[in-house]
């Protein structure tokens, strides 16, 4: 299979400096992580605040460089400064706060910002902007001011800005943390669609367990280490273990787990309302 991301024995340390600029200590944010991600995968990364997941994500497009070990995006080593712009083009990032990543006064200009900086010819920029806005369902807003958009719409514009760079991979660091339920659904559906139809590899960091259900792989981090790795069903079957990592399970998984403790013979790893309904009806 085709690996888009390869991480080998990655270690990343933050250095703590004292009053006089002397080194007073080191914090190991990533501790010997090795990981490979297939092209076209939808990978979710879970972990509590401070577990190292954002630090890991920032290694994927060379915002951070390894203290030890190596990260490859395709064939490119992220430490190789000659490739830095290629890497940033091929792996785009979307952050938590929509207001921090929109810079232009008009939606379509904001989306054009990336390809413009790549030196793409004007005609092609327009084509890319058109296509990207269509992909995130924001074409109707192309001439509006981003200020008048909702949080979910702003995040979709930010995603369009990444899509216009024609990336292989989109890395999203809690893109829905500041959104209402409708905005959250809107962003997740957009990302799923891009993954499904355009084949773009997605790496999604989130604290909402419900958003992870549609990923085809879930990775759990704790204390800078990779501690669990599997399909959503495999991961969410381990309710107690997840709780020990300060995490949670989707509400339906929790309910099924509680019912099972009361003696109902339900299977492990139920994720959705529909699955629980089917399982209960089969039993009774």
């Amino acid at each position: 299979m085709n690996k888009i991301i390869k991480i080998a024995k990655l270690i990343y340390e933050y250095t703590k400096y004292g009053e006089e600029g002397d080194v007073v200590g080191k914090t190991r944010a990533i501790d010997d992580v090795s990981l490979e991600i297939e092209k076209g995968d939808f990978v979710a990364i879970l972990g509590h605040n401070g577990s190292g997941k954002s630090t890991l994500a920032k290694h994927l497009n060379a915002i951070f460089l390894p203290t030890e070990g190596t990260v490859w995006l395709g064939e490119m080593d992220t430490k190789d400064t000659d490739h830095i712009w290629d890497i940033r083009q091929r792996a785009g990032m979307v952050f938590q706060n929509p207001d921090n990543q929109i810079i232009a006064n008009v939606v379509e200009e904001d989306v054009a910002f990336g390809p413009e900086n790549l030196g793409v010819p004007s005609m092609e920029i327009w084509e890319r902007v058109e296509k990207s806005l269509k992909a995130v369902g924001m074409t109707a807003y192309r001439r509006q001011s981003p200020n008048k958009l909702s949080g979910g719409q702003k995040q979709r514009v930010a995603i369009a800005g990444v899509v216009a760079m024609k990336p292989d991979c989109i890395i999203m660091d809690e893109p829905t943390a500041m959104l209402d339920p409708h905005g959250r659904a809107e962003v997740i559906e957009t990302v799923e669609e891009l993954n499904r139809t355009e084949g773009i590899t997605v790496v999604l960091i989130t604290h909402y367990m419900e958003e992870v259900i549609h990923a085809n792989r879930v990775i759990v981090m704790d204390d800078g280490k990779l501690v669990m790795d599997g399909t959503p069903r495999e991961i969410f079957s381990q309710v107690e273990k997840l709780k020990s990592y300060r995490l949670d399970v989707p509400q339906m998984t929790e309910l099924a787990y509680e019912l099972k403790k009361e003696g109902l013979p339900l299977r492990d790893g139920i994720l959705t309302v529909q699955e629980l309904v089917d399982e209960l009806c089969q039993y009774v």
Partner: peptide, 20 residues
């Protein structure tokens, strides 16, 4: 209104439809 109910609410309605 762009909101929702807790997932449990949807489960209860779905079970009711199945005759529970």
């Amino acid at each position: 209104m762009g909101l929702a109910a807790p997932q449990v609410t949807y489960l209860m309605h779905a079970l009711k439809e199945k005759g529970w």
